[in-house]
């Protein structure tokens, strides 16, 4: 979950955003050999807080805007509730099926970072490869036309852009990622994240603290880098996924490791809510475009 989603849904301010994010799930890798499975795919992520009453109609219109004439297709909303145990986030919703193909996950968030949300946000994640393959009527994701040279008309296909990534990262994630080092990375990131959270709780008690108290330059609460803490938490989440793909986490351990990452996410969510509380009302950043280039979704593959 990108910070633009994870953190932004926590506070009560209305918020609407759409951005593309890569979603990485190491265990879903197929060495580029499977025409429909990717370890990394692109999502168009839409957050609407609070969800408008006609949200489903708006969503269906958006499909029309993509060139899908619903009168010629079969669309169904089938129950599917999304959950990210590592980030303490879950919601209620559907997978949207278009002619038997899941094209969107539609979720009404209920909790994020263990925090009950109010108002809630609706999250729409459009699976871009699937929609593109559908629109272009190709059987393999790698056959999607990614771009055309405006002069020559030569095509660049998705495979040209991504195949090496899938192939090599599958090898890395399944076979070569150094388990021992991944654990060390995990512990380092976890440790730093925890230290930041401890730092925040000191800042929260005493808005002006000395360098001696914190071991860092003086910060006021508003400048405290919870976003940095969240990035470390995401790294933990991703390292957990890699370790999982390597088969390095037994079912017993799994629960414990998930709880460790979740503890970070919950701590950050609480701190963020606290940090936002004192933001002046006039602060209007909400329409700022948020096309972060590295907003990788590191939510673990849910079982």
């Amino acid at each position: 979950m990108a910070p633009e989603t994870f953190l932004r849904v926590l506070d009560p301010k209305p918020y609407k955003v759409a951005y593309v994010q890569p979603s990485r799930r190491p265990a879903d890798g197929r060495y580029g050999e499977n025409p429909n499975r990717l370890y990394k795919h692109m999502q168009l992520q839409v957050i609407l807080k609070p969800p408008p009453e006609n949200i489903q109609e708006l969503y269906l219109e958006s499909l029309g805007a993509l060139g899908i004439d619903l009168r010629q297709h079969d669309i169904k909303f089938e129950e599917d509730n999304w959950e990210s145990p590592t980030l303490g986030a879950w919601g209620i919703g559907w997978q949207v099926m278009l002619d038997g193909l899941e094209i969107t996950q539609f979720t009404y968030f209920q909790q994020c970072g263990g925090v009950d949300l109010f108002p809630i946000s609706a999250e729409l994640t459009y699976g871009l490869e699937r929609i593109a393959a559908f629109l272009q009527d190709v059987d393999s994701i790698y056959e999607i036309v990614w771009a055309r040279d405006p002069k020559t008309g030569d095509m660049v296909k998705y495979g040209d852009v991504r195949l090496a990534d899938e192939r090599q990262m599958s090898v890395y994630n399944f076979e070569m990622a150094d388990v021992e080092k991944a654990w060390k990375h995990f512990e380092l990131c976890e440790g730093e994240c925890k230290a930041l959270l401890d730092g925040y709780s000191i800042v929260r008690e005493k808005p002006q603290v000395s360098q001696r108290d914190l071991g860092h330059p003086i910060y006021d609460k508003k400048r405290f880098p919870l976003l940095g803490a969240y990035e470390l938490c995401l790294k933990c989440s991703h390292l957990f996924n890699i370790l999982d793909a390597r088969g390095a986490i037994s079912v017993t351990e799994r629960v414990g490791v998930i709880a460790r990452v979740r503890a970070l996410a919950v701590g950050i969510a609480k701190a963020w809510v606290d940090q936002q509380k004192d933001e002046p009302q006039a602060d209007k950043e909400e329409s700022e475009p948020a096309a972060e280039q590295n907003a990788a979704d590191m939510a673990p593959a849910t079982p």
Binding site: R71, D74, D99, D137
Partner: peptide, 26 residues
């Protein structure tokens, strides 16, 4: 089974066949 009144152009059938092919490939 569709939630609409038919598929005169065979688009829906085509789409479903593609999805099933992918699933079977998997």
């Amino acid at each position: 089974v569709l939630n609409t009144d038919g598929d005169p152009q065979g688009l829906i059938r085509h789409g479903n066949e593609r999805v099933l092919r992918a699933r079977f490939n998997d």
